[in-house]
Amino acid sequence: MSLDKATVAKVANLARIKVEEKDLEPMAAELNNILGWIEQLGEVNTDDVEPMTSVAQMSLRWRADEVTDGGYAEDVVANGPNHEDGYFAVPKVIE
């Protein structure tokens, strides 16, 4: 699999990172270099192998479905670059 310029542009859009047109080509080359090296994973036989999802054999803990935290909206929004009355402010989304 090899990334072309258009695919890099698409991935950059998915990642919400603006990439200048002139940088797409070099970035594609760079990413292809890394992905080419990763191709060697194909040599490993992984038939009937379950993907590893957890380091320790553990199941996720259950807890009671009740409110245990909250009530400090001002703390939550305090680090936002633009906020008012406990809300984050963003550019207009709906016309």
Binding site: M1, I38, L41, G42, V44, T46, V49, E50, P51, M52, T53
Partner: peptide
Amino acid sequence: AYYLKAQKVRAR
């Protein structure tokens, strides 16, 4: 092809 394969290699 990538993430799932890598997690299987990780299991090995």
